[in-house]
Design a protein around this nucleic acid. Structure first.
Length: 570
RNA sequence: CGGGGCGUAGCGCAGCCCGGUAGCGCACUCGCUUGGGGUGCGAGAGGUCGGCCGUUCAAAUCGGCUCGCCCCGACCA
């Protein structure tokens, strides 16, 4: 295609609104334009990338036995009320009324709609297993959309839903999707890792996230070098302490700690280390306030606390509540003598002896407090965040930490939706059974953004070939008729051979064309200049390495074919 | 929603403290020039200074309200 015929509004300067590399480069290279917060138009170049990713997804979904359909974006409230998610989903669900005052929403995900379809159409075990997917626009009214396509409110998602006769069959379906995702992200040219994950609002029994590794990723993952374990920190399990302290118990003692409110203050003041201290955090759930005990050097994982308490709403107590419950200002809460609230503790706390805790009065702490003697715990469990250096919860090795971008997520749903929506079928014995479900998402735009995060340099994007908007950027330099003529010939020859060529036919200076080409980031640049032609050569330049090869025009096709094949194969 | 910041030409910004003619660079149009890493010169076009209300002889500038956007935290493909 000719640049002069395409809308490719490249920007010379960084747009002020973009902070993150992929967002900046998508705007600068003319891939997207913002319409409102988290809502974007895909320009021709951006759309080509999206389509390439979609094609890879379609091929792999088909190969995995899934079939494509397309559900509506708007869906009626009744379906969502059936599963309870009309209330549960919160403000992220964009709701509206039609002209008859009926409640509708824009689909943030489609479990309700697909389950409604399947319960109507599937009556027999003979029709299972079934895996349906779509590539469609989703709308989630995110609290804070950011980073361009990385977290939009409106975004393109591939979502698949599997229905099986039982758990075992569902695990097979899940594994097929897991494998398909491995192939999809590999084919997109990404470096990624599948990790165990929390199931969040979607629910279900277990899940894996596919994380594209990037420093700018919003997620933190932990993993072992040995590959025995990888998980989102939100989810990562922590083993119980291997041994309980055998220190003899010393008598409880109250000490004055004027103005010492933080771990750093207290440990500095008492000349000790954070692991000798137990911090007491007060949390509010809709029905109660709880005190949470965590070792001083550990960090509480709120998701674990949420599931231990079996609540979805959880927030740190405000200062007034802290005073009301402990009788002391924030910074001096402790379990000793604490009445009227449940005390839950991380498992590591139980292994400690002679710890420092707040005394529930201003400017005072207890030292040498001991569990069972000085205070009690109502509930204990794994509550802290995993951190680098922790032993792997599975087998050998210690955990390392990395950042990632969640581009895909697969869930074993179990019967969560089939129960509430009565999606049943008859088994061979004529008994009514619940379909066992799975669901599987890929953020298409986010995958494109992740690819840029992983593949760029100072000058711009460096697309992995399989998702590049074009294979070759044809750059004729100068207005010479010979150059124009040679370009035209090469363009036709390459295009005829199914190589996708972006032809910069603008009357622009060499520098402008080079800079735009580097910014747009097609894998190969084909440079045609008067000087080269005089020597009977043109130049093929690899965007990633910058290496260029001079060769006669009639060898370009063969050369590029080989180069493109080589990348495809790698 | 809490914290921080920003709205001035298509883009990037200055002007605002200290009220008085709206400015710079890029992009755009025309002419010449140049032609292998964002040519040079000249001439132009383009702005309700986010919106509303107020203070004032006078508001981009001061005050209040409001809308939008960006960044940091709780949600997620």
């Amino acid at each position: 295609m000719r640049v002069s015929h395409l809308l490719i509004p490249t920007l010379r300067e960084d747009p002020g609104e973009a902070e993150v590399v992929s967002h900046r480069l998508m705007l600068r290279a003319g891939l997207i334009r913002k319409v409102a917060a988290g809502i974007y138009t895909y320009l021709p170049l951006g759309l080509r990338v999206i389509r390439k990713i979609e094609t890879i997804i379609r091929e792999e979904m088909t190969r995995a036995g899934a079939q494509e359909l397309l559900m509506p974006i708007a869906s009626p409230a009744e379906l969502w009320r059936e599963t309870g998610r009309w209330d549960y989903y919160g403000k992220e669900l964009l709701r509206f009324k039609d002209r008859h005052e009926r409640d509708f929403c824009l689909g943030p995900t489609h479990e309700e709609v697909i389950t409604d379809l399947i319960r109507r159409e599937v009556r027999s075990y003979r029709q299972l297993p079934l895996n349906c997917y779509q590539i469609q626009t989703k709308f989630r009214d995110e609290i804070r959309p950011r980073f361009g396509l990385m977290r939009g409110r409106e975004f393109i998602m591939k979502d698949a839903y599997s229905f099986d006769v039982d758990e075992e069959a569902a695990r097979v379906s899940y594994q097929k999707m897991y494998d398909a995702y491995q192939r999809i992200f590999t084919r997109c040219g990404l470096t990624f890792r599948a990790v165990e994950a929390d199931t969040g609002l979607i629910g279900g029994t277990s899940s894996h996230e596919f994380m594209v590794l990037a420093e700018t990723g919003e997620e933190t993952i932990v993993y072992t070098e040995e590959g025995t374990y990888a998980a989102n920190v939100e989810r990562a399990e922590v083993l119980p302490p291997v041994r309980v302290s055998d220190e003899p118990q010393r008598p409880l003692q109250k000490v004055s700690t004027p103005g010492m409110k933080t771990i750093v203050d207290v440990t500095g003041f008492l000349k000790t280390t954070p692991d000798r201290l137990v911090k007491t955090l007060l949390y509010k759930t809709p029905k109660e306030v709880v005190a949470v005990l965590v070792r001083g050097d550990h960090e509480l994982n709120e998701i674990k606390l949420r599931s231990l308490l079996d609540v979805t709403d959880l927030e740190m107590a405000d200062p007034e509540t802290v005073i009301a419950c402990t009788g002391a200002p924030v910074g001096f809460a402790g379990p000793v003598g604490l009445r009227g609230v449940r005390i839950v503790a991380d498992q590591a706390v139980a292994a400690l002896r002679n710890v420092i805790v707040g005394a529930n009065e201003a400017d005072a702490h207890y030292v040498d407090a001991n569990l069972d003697r000085d205070f009690n715990i109502d509930l204990a469990g794994d509550l802290r965040k995993a951190e680098a250096g922790d032993p792997s919860p599975r087998g050998d090795g210690t955990l390392k930490v990395a950042r990632g971008i969640e581009t895909g997520h697969v869930f074993m749903l179990g019967t969560k939706y089939s129960v509430t929506m009565k999606a049943t079928f008859l088994d061979p014995q004529g008994r009514e059974r619940l379909a066992v479900m799975g669901c599987y998402g890929i953020g298409v735009g986010r995958t494109a953004a992740a690819a840029i995060e992983q593949n760029h340099d100072q000058k711009g994007i460096i697309w992995p070939l399989p998702i590049a908007p074009f294979h070759v950027h044809l750059l004729p330099l100068g207005p010479s008729p010979k150059v124009v003529e040679a370009s035209q010939r090469l363009y036709e020859e390459l295009t005829g051979a199914a190589i996708e060529v972006l032809w910069d036919d603008r009357d622009e200076r060499a520098g402008v064309k080079f800079n735009d080409a580097d910014l747009i980031g097609t894998p190969y640049h084909l440079v045609i200049g008067e000087k080269g032609l005089a020597q009977g050569t043109v130049e093929v330049k690899e965007r990633r390495t910058g290496t260029s090869t001079k060769l006669p025009p009639d060898q370009v096709l063969t050369h590029l074919r080989q180069a493109l094949e080589a990348i495809r194969a790698s």
